[in-house]
Computed example of a mutant assay.
Amino acid sequence: MNQQNVTQVHTPARHFSVLLSPTPRGARLARLLAVAWMRDHDVPYGLTESATQVVAELAANAATHGRVGGRSFRLALLSRPDTLRIEVTDTRGEDLPRARPHRPESDSGRGLLLVEALADRWGVALGPVPRKTVWAELDLPRP
């Protein structure tokens, strides 16, 4: 019987996390830091554009709807061989996000619709109290 030694190569997950102020400036900084991190970790360009928009929407929601004075929000990026995961955690666990029907006359309310369109999956995880994490995953192209 011929046996071959097969070595599996496990690509470690790459992770980034930062606390930011729940302000428009903090949301903008989340987007800029995400772009720099994705560039440094060779996330494909087309995916970077979609991921940047997802980060911008989730961070803006955290700064607008998840804002609690004196409490930061957290941006986390996790890259695995097949998935880029974006997480934004704020301290308004009682205020769960939900996609709302779009009103053409409204200036806001499209964020989660964009996230839903750009991400392959998204959802909300609760806890620990008083936190909630809104996450989105984008599938990475296979080599």
Rank of each mutant, 00 (worst) to 15 (best):
F73G: 07
A62S: 13
R142K: 07
A30Q: 03
V9W: 06
L20A: 05
L114G: 07
L77R: 08
A117M: 08
Q53A: 09
Q4K: 12
T64L: 07
G46H: 03
L58I: 02
T89S: 15
L29F: 00
R121V: 05
V68D: 09
R74T: 15
D107N: 12
P130W: 02
G69F: 05
G93L: 14
L29P: 00
A27I: 06
T11D: 14
R25I: 05
L96H: 03
L29M: 08
P24S: 03
A34G: 09
A63H: 02
P44Y: 04
R100E: 15
A30P: 01
A117T: 13
P44W: 04
T133C: 13
R74E: 15
V129G: 00
L29T: 10
V18K: 10
L114P: 05
E137I: 00
R71H: 12
T52E: 11
A13R: 08
A51G: 06
D82Y: 06
G46N: 04
T91M: 06
P130D: 02
H65I: 00
N5R: 15
I86P: 04
L138M: 13
S106D: 15
T64Q: 11
Q53K: 02
A119V: 03
H10W: 07
G111L: 10
V68C: 08
A27N: 08
A56W: 01
L20V: 03
P101C: 01
A51C: 07
P130H: 04
L19Q: 13
A119M: 02
G123A: 12
L20H: 04
L75P: 07
G111Y: 02
T133K: 07
R67P: 00
I86R: 05
P101I: 03
H15R: 12
A34L: 03
D40G: 09
E105A: 14
Q8H: 12
P128V: 06
T64K: 15
M38C: 05
V55N: 08
A125F: 00
L140W: 04
R28D: 09
Q4E: 12
N2T: 10
G66Q: 08
R100Y: 03
R80N: 02
P44N: 03
D82H: 13
R103C: 06
H41W: 08
N2A: 11
P22K: 09
A27C: 09
L84V: 05
R100A: 14
E105P: 04
P130S: 03
A59M: 05
R98S: 15
R85L: 07
W135M: 07
R92F: 01
R39N: 07
T83L: 14
V35E: 12
R92E: 10
L32P: 00
G26K: 06
H65S: 01
R28L: 11
A51R: 06
R85P: 01
D107P: 09
R74I: 05
L84A: 05
H15E: 12
S17K: 09
V55E: 09
A136D: 06
H41P: 01
A117W: 06
A63R: 04
V35R: 12
R14V: 14
E105W: 15
R71T: 04
E116N: 14
D82R: 14
S79H: 04
L113F: 02
R110W: 13
T83D: 11
V18P: 00
T91W: 11
D95M: 09
D82G: 12
V43W: 01
L113R: 15
D82K: 11
Y45V: 03
V43G: 01
H102R: 12
T52I: 00
R85G: 01
L84F: 05
D107I: 09
P130Y: 02
